[in-house]
Structures are given as structure tokens and as C-alpha cells.
Design a protein around this nucleic acid. Structure first.
Lengths: 335, 335
DNA sequence: TTTTTTTACGAAAACGTTTTCTAAAACGAA
DNA sequence: TTCGTTTTAGAAAACGTTTTCGTAAAAAAA
């Protein structure tokens, strides 16, 4: 592990450490000939500057953090792909932190990042989110911060989301057009802004089509998949069960398929299903699943780009991007 | 960003920097009363040591790197979950690098890590892998290194894989039992050890059942999904098309479903399909997909545990773990 | 009492950079 | 020649820790 450093280069070249450093950083103070000599030796010894020494001195880490609730979710993996591609372009390194939808973990992680370890943070909130002190803390540290998808509306930070209200509306309207009259909503927690917006779109669509909003058709789901499954099953076992289901995340659609399969309820004949999803396999499910698909890769790219802009400008902008999701009609809604 | 450091603590407490440092590190040299005072002020000011200064001084980064070919793949996301859980236990940070199956990127990334940025590396190889100079380089640096799934057999490093040969054998034998006689193998590159082993299992199973190994039924797939799709389509358009397909990764199974759907070839009646896969949706595909499922989460956990063992012992062991995959029979093979 | 040991802390070096400040040499102008 | 300016390089400080070493004072031993 004994790697070559500036001192060693300086010794071999009979130069001072500072001269070598300047030569490698292409300073005008150094004569071309010296630069050449230094560069040559550095190359031949495969010199690489120590990142920690450099970070300490420059107060820059060339590292960003990505905090997400989970990773076994196609939306987030695609977003990470986008983030990584931009980070690579900027020569940055990417730290990954998973909160597992656990508020306490989210707090711990944000605290870990308050000491200069990273130059910026990309974050998608966990749902068990009552207080938000930790987010204000992060913000107070002047650490560039960009939220994506699950954003925290109250904070003056950059945000990138999709048109969740419109998508919720369109999803619900689509079910109505396909003949549904009793439409259930499998909702994610309302403390997430996207949960609230999707729900609002759902309710507005019902209103606009003279359908009642029924509380017993709104299922408050959580990160506990077993409980979600139990809720959905209970829902589908009712005698006045819904004829349409709008799932707000892909896992809930899968749970719905499973419940319907076990209860021998035919999709789309007896109940139609639409879901937010980035599933590669949506088209090959039985039946193929009608989805609202978010431009996850693009979200990641935009969020990262904005973050680097903020890092460069040392200026946390109050940016708000809203990208469009697309509704892909398939058999689960009778198309 | 002006965060509190040892100097500031020392000033406020009228102590020296070294005393404060020792107090916080619970050194025996410091009296309990002083420790209490120091700790109290540190807590109240939310002191957090600068990670770069600490890393520089201790020559330890508390960070590991995970290098994988892609992330939009359930195997890898589950593995990352496992890795992250162990890393968190050890108080380590996790850097993610994606090679996108690109040899050149893999080389660049391994070079980035030769300067002490990380204390260890977890790696799953990219497939376009002709030379391996960069892996030997990494190994020479004495950087603890653990391969998982796509391992490099020739290097004396720790490795964690599944029983790929046996799984390939069982998958093929299962197709044979289900009545298939012309079984195609959608193969990943043979320069990947898992590709070779899965293929060997396939061939041995054919042999053991007195079936010929036919080169034209072995499709060499790559990371180019469009080409793979074209190959598979061509395969299924032949008049002597196969009656069984063994796909070595989940993406190829999806391609197969798509090709069969477009060509109106019925699964499992006309062709049976089995695939390595960690798809959550396997059971809900049309038809449900028979899979060989790897214990991806467990692989991640084991690989990470071994890495931390290597970091602790400063001893790169020649460890080789082989976990068992499980064959889950579903409708795509007529079950 | 004197000597030795232990205790509790501080000074300073070290980690490997970057950057500021200083200085010698070379050069040009007067 | 002399004086100022430019060019090139080195010395030293700085980033924030940890750790080694030194040293007073206190405690223990003689």
C-alpha cells in the first residue's frame, strides 16, 4: 500500500515538494521543461494524489451522497443510473445510503453527512416522516441539497419531481373511462408530498366525474408489505369490492395481482388495475399492467445536474423541476 | 459550513488540542472529570470530527467501494442491500461504481481506487473482459478485494458465488424432464466464470440424457439488448426451433417472452422457458416464469462480511464461498 | 526527607496535499 | 552600472486530526 507521494517525487527529481505540486497542477510559475520532467516521473511511477490530503486542504471532497428509501425498486435504480452518469462526468464519487423507510435511520444518515464528507446531497425522503428537524439542520449547514421524487416541500431547496397530481388524475380518469365506478386508491403516506398529490389527483378526478370519494376505498399503505397485502386482500373480499384499483407504487400493484390471483378475481374483467411503476416486466405480466411510468433516469440526471450547479455556484437555488410521467395503457385496464 | 473543530473546543475549554482529542477518544491518560467536560461541550456544539483529516492521519477511510456492471438488475440491487446492511453495522460508507459492462470503464474505476480512497473493494466483473491487468494491479496494492457472483477465478482473492454449474445442470435437466428435446441456451459471455459454468452444466445435462449439444442452439448474448432480441427472434423463427430455452440472465428471459409474444409462439405449449432471475414479478408473468433464483441478499452480506474480515486482519484470504440457488417451478415450464 | 513512579496534560510531529510568502537569478531600462 | 521587474523555485504555513514524546506536579516508595 506504500504509494508514491509528492515527497518521493521531489526527492527523486531533486526538486521541492511545492515545485512538484505546482508542476502537476500546471501552474504558470513552473517552466515547461520542469513540468515535463515532473509529469514524466509521475506517470512512470503511477503517482496518484492522496484524495484525503487533497480534500482536507481544499475543503472539497469530490463526493456526493445519495439518500434513498430503498434500492430494490426500479424507479430508484434508474434514478441512480442517471445520477451516476452525471457524477462520472464531473469526476465525482457517489456514496449510497439506504434509509429502508426508517425515519430514525434517515436522521442518522443526515447527521453523518454534516461534517464535510460530501459536497452535496441528493435525497428522496423516507415515508415515516413526522418531524423534519434533520432536514432543516442539513440545510442550515449550507450543504447543497437536491430532493428528487419524494421531496420536502417546506424547505427552500432544489426539487425535481414528476407531475404527480396530473398523473393521479389521469390514472383515475382512465379507470373511469374504462367503466369503473368504485375505484380504490392504494395510497402511500400523505406526509410524502407525492402521496398527497397523487391522492388529490385521484379525488379531483372522481369529483369531476360525479363519483363520490369514499374513505373506505382509500387504503393507507405503509412500508410493511405483509400488512399492505392483508389490507388489499381484505378490500377485495368485501362484497362491495372495488371495480378499479389505482396503486401509487409498483409493489402495491404486485400485491394486488397476488391477492386477485388467490381470490380468483379476474383482471381486468372484474377489477381493473393501474399503477405507478417502472417495471421492465409490466408488458409481460398476466395481464399486462397499465402503468404510469416516471422518467426515472431523467429525474436522476436532472437532480444531479442541478446539484452540481449548486455546488459550483455555492448557491442553493430554489429550483423546482417537474417532469412528465407517461400513461401506458395495457390489458389490466381492459385495453 | 464553518464547523466546529478540535481547536475551537480546546479554546473554549482552555485545554490543549491533544487533550481534547484524547478525551474524545476515551484515552486512559485523561481524567474522568475532564472527559466529561469535553464530551459535554462537544455534544452541545455538535462536534463531528473531520473525516478527511482523520483518514489522512489514520490512513483509513472507513469507506468501501462496490463495483458492479449495472444496477437496473434485481440481483445486484439485492446484493447491494446485503452489502449496505453489513457496511452500516461496521460504520462504513459505501461508494458505488457502475461499469455498464464496459471494460474500459472498469479499468478506469479500478485505477481511481488505487490511492487509498477506500479500505476495500467488492466487485462483480463486467463481461467485456479480455485482459485483466487492472485486477492484478489492484491486487498488488494489497487492497482487500472480494469478488461476488462474476468472479475472476485466476486471482488469489476472496470470492462468493452460487452453484452455477449445478444450477445450469438442474435447469437443463428440468426442461428435459418436462419433455424438451431441443434445448437452446441463451448464454452470457464465456469469459465470465459464471457464464462458463452455467454453460458446462447445460452441456453435461444434455450429455447425461443422451441429447446432442448443438452449437446452433447456443446463443452467445452480450450486453446489447437489441442484438440479443434479434438473435432470439431469429432462433425462434427457424423451422427447427427449440422446444426449450434456458436463459442465463433475467433480461434474456424477458426478451424471450417478447419474441414469443410477437411470433405467437405459446409458452409453455410450444416452448418451455427457464431462467436465472431475481424478478419479484416472476410469479405474475404471463405465463409465470420458472426461475433459478440466487440468494442475492445473502451473497451481498457474505461478500461484505468477508471483506471486513480481510480489512480487519490485513490479510487477503483465498476464501471461496458457494451458496445454493433454488429452482422455482412455474408455468413457463409446464408446471 | 529524598527519590522514584505515576498521573494528567501539553508541545510538536505527522499524514499528503495546496497555497502563500519569500528569495535568488535573470533581464531590461535608465 | 544601478535599479526595478520578471521568472522560477523553495520554505513554510495551513487543512484537522492522531499520536509520540516530553514534563510538571502529585503520589508513592524509600
Amino acid at each position: 500500500m506504500k504509494s508514491v507521494n509528492l515527497k518521493e517525487l521531489a526527492r527523486q527529481l531533486n526538486l521541492s515538494i511545492s515545485t512538484v505540486s505546482k508542476a502537476l497542477n500546471d501552474s504558470y510559475e513552473i517552466t515547461p521543461e520542469t513540468k515535463r520532467r515532473v509529469q514524466e516521473l509521475a506517470d512512470s511511477l503511477h503517482y496518484q494524489p492522496n484524495p484525503y490530503a487533497r480534500s482536507l486542504r481544499k475543503q472539497k471532497s469530490k463526493t456526493i451522497a445519495v439518500i434513498i428509501p430503498e434500492i430494490a425498486n426500479n424507479f430508484f435504480t434508474l434514478a441512480i443510473n442517471g445520477i451516476e452518469s452525471i457524477a462520472r462526468q464531473h469526476g465525482y464519487h457517489v456514496l449510497i445510503y439506504l434509509t429502508h423507510e426508517d425515519y430514525q435511520k434517515e436522521v442518522e444518515i443526515t447527521q453523518l453527512l454534516q461534517n464535510g464528507r460530501v459536497d452535496g446531497v441528493l435525497m428522496s425522503l423516507s415515508s415515516n416522516n413526522n418531524e423534519n428537524e434533520h432536514l432543516y439542520d442539513l440545510h442550515k449547514k449550507m450543504l447543497p441539497l437536491v430532493f428528487f421524487d419524494r421531496v420536502f416541500e417546506d424547505l427552500e431547496a432544489a426539487k425535481v419531481t414528476t407531475d404527480d397530481y396530473e398523473s393521479g388524475y389521469k390514472a383515475t380518469a382512465h379507470l373511469i373511462e374504462q367503466g369503473c365506478r368504485r375505484i380504490a386508491h392504494l395510497a402511500i403516506p400523505k406526509d410524502l408530498s407525492i402521496g398527497k398529490k397523487r391522492m388529490q389527483g385521484y379525488m379531483q378526478a372522481l369529483n369531476d366525474h360525479q363519483l363520490p370519494v369514499q374513505d373506505d376505498l382509500i387504503i393507507a399503505c405503509t412500508d410493511n408489505q405483509q400488512m399492505n397485502y392483508a389490507f388489499i386482500r381484505e378490500l377485495m373480499e368485501r362484497k362491495d369490492r372495488p371495480d378499479g384499483i389505482f396503486a401509487s407504487v409498483e409493489k402495491l400493484a404486485i400485491n394486488t395481482y397476488q391477492a386477485c390471483s388467490e381470490l380468483h378475481i379476474a383482471i381486468p374483467e372484474e377489477v381493473k388495475v393501474i399503477s405507478f411503476a417502472n417495471l421492465e416486466t409490466a408488458a409481460f405480466l398476466n395481464p399486462s399492467l397499465t402503468t404510469i411510468t416516471q422518467p426515472a433516469f431523467e429525474i436522476g440526471k436532472q437532480a444531479a445536474s442541478i446539484l452540481f450547479e449548486a455546488i459550483r455556484m455555492k448557491n442553493i437555488k430554489n429550483h423546482y423541476s417537474i417532469l412528465k410521467s407517461v400513461l401506458i395503457k395495457r390489458k389490466s385496464t381492459g385495453c
